[in-house]
Computed example of a mutant assay.
Amino acid sequence: MQMTAGGIRVAVLTVSDTRTEVTDKGGPLVRELAQEAGMEITASVIVKDEPEAIRSAVAEWMTHEEVDIIITTGGTGIARRDVTIEAVRPMLNKELDGFGELFRFLSYEEIGTRAILSRALGGSIGDKAVFVLPGSPGAVRLAMEKLIIPEAEHITKELTKHRQPRT
């Protein structure tokens, strides 16, 4: 079943101390699935597992009109260096608790009790949606296909419906 979220503009942030453009699997999969759904990729970058680098990339994209959704991948584990959720959560205006809950529920169906290690976060900053995903291709595919793509248009519409027209 081909889902579409046409016209949605996405920025993709890979967070990793070890991944490069050549070895990153999560970021390219986010881009591929988003494009297959009719979304436009407007930015993509890799940063280290450093809170300031993560916040800086997200904050930069918050100022870009051509970004509707920011999707991060990586840095969500429980190791000391996994800080993406801790870096992004304080930036959110509103958190979509159901995103993380559903992500873990669906993960449990696929990987069993290892899902307790699955940290994922969804929310909004201003009129932009933000999703923080683990870096594994399986987690990216699950989040994109079962949660983000099916709801992207609705979420974007809700976040922008009170936007003031430009004068």
Rank of each mutant, 00 (worst) to 15 (best):
M1D: 08
M3V: 07
M3R: 12
T4G: 01
A5F: 04
I8T: 13
I8E: 03
I8G: 02
I8M: 07
T14Q: 06
V15H: 09
S16A: 08
D17T: 06
T18Q: 05
R19C: 07
R19P: 02
T20F: 02
V22Q: 14
T23R: 06
T23A: 10
T23F: 07
T23S: 15
T23C: 08
D24Y: 06
G26V: 09
G27C: 09
V30L: 07
V30Q: 05
E32K: 14
L33G: 02
A34P: 01
A37W: 07
E40K: 13
V45A: 13
I46E: 02
I46H: 05
V47T: 08
K48V: 06
P51C: 06
W61D: 07
M62G: 13
H64V: 01
E65H: 03
E66D: 15
E66Y: 12
I70W: 03
T72R: 10
G74R: 12
T76V: 10
T76N: 10
D82F: 08
D82I: 11
V83R: 11
E86H: 09
R89E: 15
R89P: 01
N93I: 00
N93Q: 08
K94A: 11
L96Y: 15
G98D: 10
G98R: 10
E101I: 12
F103T: 09
F105W: 12
S107A: 13
S107K: 04
E109D: 08
E109W: 01
E110A: 13
R114P: 00
S118V: 13
S118G: 05
G122W: 04
S124H: 07
K128C: 04
V130I: 15
V130H: 05
F131W: 09
L133N: 03
L133E: 01
P134N: 11
P137T: 14
G138N: 14
A139C: 02
A143F: 05
M144H: 05
M144C: 08
M144Q: 03
E145A: 12
P150Q: 13
E151T: 11
I155T: 12
T156S: 14
T160M: 06
T160G: 01
H162P: 00
R163V: 13
P165A: 06
P165D: 05
